[in-house]
């Protein structure tokens, strides 16, 4: 079914308390800022698990949602860029789940690809492997990592066409394609909404099959 066009507020309206939300971006580059603002201003969902490489910056992007006390759990690889994450974790208001960045990306990819988990050598012998199943494969120690599914994925693409095919620009691609495939509901915020074939079929990064709703960036 083609992706339907919606306002940012409508697009986030089905996100419920307790949901897991995947949010694209590396820092603020490639982050779906209009959708995050809509989640901050127009949604009442609380106790959210947010999966994102970072949790925005103080008072910016996902940092706004953190300030509202609506994030219960943050899953990502680098929260150091927002000191308010440390404060919230210290106060016991936020559970932080840290993953090596490549494991975060692969766990999202695995979820989208219908994979039940994967073994990786990354993190073996470190605090991040604590409690994880270990297995030696071809002489190399590996840990078992689970896929990361989302109830909703909020992604940003520079261009989206009328069906929902997406094209990302430069390093704004980052986690967006893996997240777009890993959620039950995927909302794409697009910089530019274009006609069919304005994105060459060979250049489509995320095929429309993954995209449910589209909204325009502000």
């Amino acid at each position: 079914m083609p992706a339907r066009l919606a306002s940012p507020e409508e697009a986030v309206s089905s996100i419920r308390t307790g949901d897991t939300v995947l949010a694209g971006g590396f820092g603020l580059v490639g982050a779906p800022l209009a959708l995050i603002d809509a989640l901050v201003e127009a949604s009442k969902a609380r106790e959210l698990t947010v999966v994102s490489n970072n949790l925005g910056e103080p008072g910016k992007g996902l940092g706004k949602l953190l300030r509202q006390g609506r994030v219960r759990r943050a899953v990502g690889s680098f929260f150091t860029s927002n000191p308010e994450v440390a404060a919230a974790a210290q106060a016991g208001e936020l559970e932080v789940v840290l993953l090596p960045q490549g494991t975060l990306a692969e766990a999202l990819r695995a979820a989208g690809a219908g994979i039940g988990g994967f073994f990786t050598p990354i993190g073996v012998g470190t605090e991040l492997a604590r409690g994880k199943e270990e297995r030696r494969i071809d002489g190399v120690a590996n840990v078992l990592e689970a896929p990361l599914h989302g109830d909703a994925a909020l992604v940003y693409a520079a261009r989206g066409d009328e069906l929902g095919n997406l094209w990302y620009r430069k390093t704004a691609r980052n986690f967006n394609p893996a997240m777009a495939a890993a959620a039950r509901l995927t909302v794409a915020e697009v910089g530019e909404l274009v006609a069919l074939d304005e994105i060459e079929p060979e250049s489509v990064h995320t095929p429309h099959v993954y995209v449910d709703l589209m909204t325009r960036a502000r």
Partner: peptide, 28 residues
């Protein structure tokens, strides 16, 4: 270019012959 940064989140340029990909492929 606001869409072109490195892992330290500093602006960079891309050389002729550069390739962009996504995070899953980057770590693959």
């Amino acid at each position: 270019d606001e869409d072109l940064i490195d892992a330290a989140k500093q602006p960079v340029t891309a050389l002729a012959g550069a390739a962009y990909f996504d995070s899953a492929e980057s770590f693959a």
